[in-house]
Design a protein around this nucleic acid. Sequence first.
DNA 1: GCCAACGTTGGC
DNA 2: GCCAACGTTGGC
Length: 152
Amino acid sequence: MRYWLMKSEPDTFSISDLSDRPLQTEHWDGVRNYQARNMMRDDMKLGDQVFFYHSNCDVPGIVGIMEVVKEGYADFSAFDPDDKHFDPKSSPDKPTWIMVDVRFVRQLSRTISLKELKQHPALADLALVRRGNRLSIMPVTAEQWAYILALE
DNA sequence: GCCAACGTTGGC
DNA sequence: GCCAACGTTGGC
């Protein structure tokens, strides 16, 4: 089993939005970055555990845990001309963009902020704290996962 | 295939 | 709202 971190702006889609969904499940649509796409397409498997990260907000940080419940499939938001993430180059026959479904597991008892994560030498290799990293989906090692959860 | 211009992300 | 750091686009 692998571990991941996925970012979302809470104004757009927050951890509470996820837990309010039917079956507490949602498809992670709208990712339009090839590196992130490739991870969802090739590497994310059923049962993988994922940190939910709130970005672009008062206190950016990890707020909860979710689980992959459906592996990569066509991101249909790319087919809808009215969708913000419409991409005319993507078609149902040959989808350019891929998404997975995730299910709410639990909220953390507190937000583990980006600021705090940056202070731990053990997490220096975490993609999130590397300078200039803008990937919205990134791998987390088992060691990093356990270390971060122990901070809770 | 280079690279400047442009758009986006996201912390601060 | 600013702006650094990227990724993408498109002219050449």
